[in-house]
Simulated assay, not measured.
Amino acid sequence: MQHRRPRLSKKAKTLTATAVALAAAAGVTVAQAGEPSKRCTAFDTITLGKYYVNNNLWGQDKGTGSQCVWGDSASGDTVSWGTGYTWANNARGTDADVKSYASTVLGWHWGWKVDQARTGLPVKVGDRKKMTVSWEFSLSSTPGTMNVAHDLWLHAENTADWQDQPTDEIMIWLNRQGGAGPLGTKYGSVSLGGAMWDIYQGDIGWKVYSFVRRTNTTKATLDLDDFTQALVRRKLLGNDKYVSGIESGTEVFKGTGRLDTKSYSVTIG
Rank of each mutant, 00 (worst) to 15 (best):
D115R: 13
S244A: 09
V98L: 02
T78Q: 10
P6M: 06
A74E: 15
G179V: 08
Y264G: 02
A96K: 10
A96S: 14
E251S: 05
V148K: 03
V105S: 01
S80H: 09
C68W: 09
D168M: 06
V190K: 09
T142G: 03
Q2F: 08
E169H: 05
Y242S: 02
A180H: 09
G107W: 03
G84C: 10
V69C: 14
Y187H: 08
V133M: 11
N239H: 10
V105L: 02
A33M: 11
V252N: 00
E157Y: 10
I46L: 14
S265T: 01
G193T: 04
I172E: 01
A26K: 15
D226V: 00
E157N: 13
M196W: 07
T142H: 13
D226W: 01
S138K: 12
K241F: 02
D127Q: 06
A31N: 12
D97V: 00
G238C: 05
V105N: 06
P166Q: 11
V212F: 00
L237P: 01
T185L: 01
Y242C: 03
G202M: 10
L139K: 12
V266I: 01
A88L: 14
S191T: 13
F137C: 09
V252Q: 00
S100I: 00
G202L: 03
W162E: 12
K219P: 03
F43G: 11
G238M: 07
I246A: 04
K219M: 03
Q177W: 02
E35C: 11
V190E: 08
A19E: 15
T86V: 07
S138T: 13
K13A: 07
V30Y: 09
C40L: 14
T185Q: 07
A195R: 10
N175S: 08
K129Y: 08
K50C: 07
T45Q: 15
A42Q: 15
S103C: 04
L139Y: 03
G65N: 15
K113C: 00
P166S: 07
K262M: 06
D127V: 04
S9M: 08
W135S: 04
T218R: 10
P122T: 05
I199G: 04
N158S: 14
Y242I: 01
D168T: 11
Y200V: 04
P36H: 09
D164M: 06
I46D: 10
N90L: 07
A156P: 04
T119M: 03
D168Q: 05
D198S: 12
A156Y: 08
S140L: 06
R39K: 15
E136N: 07
K241S: 03
T256H: 07
Y51S: 15
K219N: 12
V252I: 08
E247N: 13
T94M: 02
K11I: 03
L22C: 07
M171K: 11
G257D: 06
V123H: 06
G126Y: 02
T14E: 03
A33N: 12
T159P: 00
S73M: 12
P182M: 03
T94P: 01
W206V: 09
G181K: 05
M196G: 11
W108G: 00
D161G: 02
A21F: 05
V208S: 02
K262R: 13
A91N: 09
